[in-house]
């Protein structure tokens, strides 16, 4: 079971430096909560690690292999669930799954696999335009898991979900973590924070370890200062 190491990751948008020097690590079965105020760069960090954005410096290793330089390995090892639900309105759930899953993996996922666990099988023929937010989120997570990743990057995964749906999704993440997966969650949500085994506060482009003890007021003050 391999660990991830994020070292000195930097990212700039034109002249603005969003990530200056991000460094942390996580092992199997760990869930790291990335905390920070709005605009602090949490989503940017996750996008950079996911390969959506190109980093300006640093490394992101899994078992010693730098995933920034190995696109193929990163695609296989890292799953990313973005903040919104980036799906094509006209296509059905099944259409989306066919885009991202290989045929055998799709069959496995639908028959007792992760897709069945997420409950996606219940709305395979529904177009995205007619789905609820919960259904869309579950489908997004299903798409992110197509490569059976060992690392899952989640950007506010349960935002705008109802309580039941939220609970189901968090249960799945808990199970994923317990099976040795590594989770990085950018969040403000207390229930998501409860899932985490460690925390990093992102401030001024730099992460630092943070001790969260369930005190949201203190957290918000720390984010401001």
């Amino acid at each position: 079971m391999e660990s991830i190491e994020v070292r000195n990751v930097q990212k700039k948008y034109r002249r603005k430096t969003v990530l200056r020097d991000v460094t942390f690590s996580a092992g199997p079965g760990e869930c790291i909560g990335i905390l920070g105020g709005n605009g602090s760069g949490k989503s940017t960090l996750l996008k950079t690690l996911a390969g959506v954005l190109r980093p300006d410096g640093g490394s992101f290793t899994l078992g010693g292999a730098d995933l920034f330089r190995d696109d193929k390995r990163r695609a296989a090892a890292v799953g990313y669930v973005p903040q919104g639900t980036p799906l094509l309105r006209e296509l059905t759930a099944m259409d989306h799954l066919r885009l991202w899953y290989r045929p055998e993996a799709l069959r496995r996922g639908l028959n007792g696999g992760v897709l069945e666990m997420l409950g996606v099988t219940g709305f395979l023929k529904t177009p995205v335009g007619k789905m609820s937010e919960g259904m869309k989120k579950r489908l997004s997570i299903g798409c992110a898991l197509a490569s059976n990743p060992r690392v899952l990057l989640l950007d506010e995964p349960s935002a705008a979900l109802d309580l039941v749906c939220k609970a189901n999704i968090l249960d799945y993440f808990c199970m994923y973590r317990n099976r040795g997966g590594i989770l990085l969650i950018a969040t403000h949500d207390p229930q998501e924070l409860e899932l985490c085994t460690g925390y990093r506060l992102l401030r001024d482009g730099v992460t630092e370890p943070y001790e969260y003890r369930g005190d949201l007021r203190r957290l918000s003050e720390d984010m401001k200062s």
């Binding site: 390969g51 959506v52 696109d71 695609a75 980036p86 992110a144």
Partner: peptide, 12 residues
Amino acid sequence: QEAEAFVWMRRR
């Protein structure tokens, strides 16, 4: 507008 929907595609 649509590009985000392909976020899971490999960079290459």
